[in-house]
């Protein structure tokens, strides 16, 4: 059974979002997504400073048998990426919601209301 922390926001394409105290938003892929992909072997991260709008492909996570795009869940600028994933992409497998985060975004609009809460995401992945 995949873990779905109640305090996070989610997308249908299996990204999670956490609003930090400084207003930045941390983004990663869900436990369910990492289970589907299997052992991750590579993550192609965006460059800090790049701006994206909602729905842009901004990152690729790769396992042996699959490669999956990560879609930008909200519009904004990338302010920091998780450099540790370059050498150890498997952190996403072991800690998808914590040390396996992908990048932090400075949002350019308030779009959080459009996203799913934990209950809705749980229902989504059970279908």
């Amino acid at each position: 059974m995949s873990e779905v922390p109640s305090e996070l926001k989610y997308t249908k394409s299996h990204e999670w979002l956490r609003v930090e105290d400084d207003g930045l938003i941390t983004i990663g892929i869900t436990d369910h997504a990492q289970e589907l992909l299997g052992d991750l072997v590579f993550v192609e991260l965006p460059e800090a400073g790049t701006e994206f709008v909602t729905g842009d492909e901004c990152c690729v996570v790769e396992s042996v048998k699959a490669a999956s795009d990560v879609y930008m869940p909200i519009s904004g600028e990338i302010v920091e990426v998780n450099e540790a994933l370059a050498d150890e992409p498997e952190i996403i497998n072991t800690s998808p919601y914590d040390s396996g985060w992908l990048f932090k975004v400075k949002p350019s609009a308030d779009e959080l209301a459009d996203l799913m809460d934990a209950d809705a995401y749980q229902t989504e992945i059970e279908e």
Binding site: D39, V41, F42, E62, V64, P89
Partner: peptide
Amino acid sequence: RLDEVRAAK
């Protein structure tokens, strides 16, 4: 069986 994860990493 061969370790494909190791091969890719």
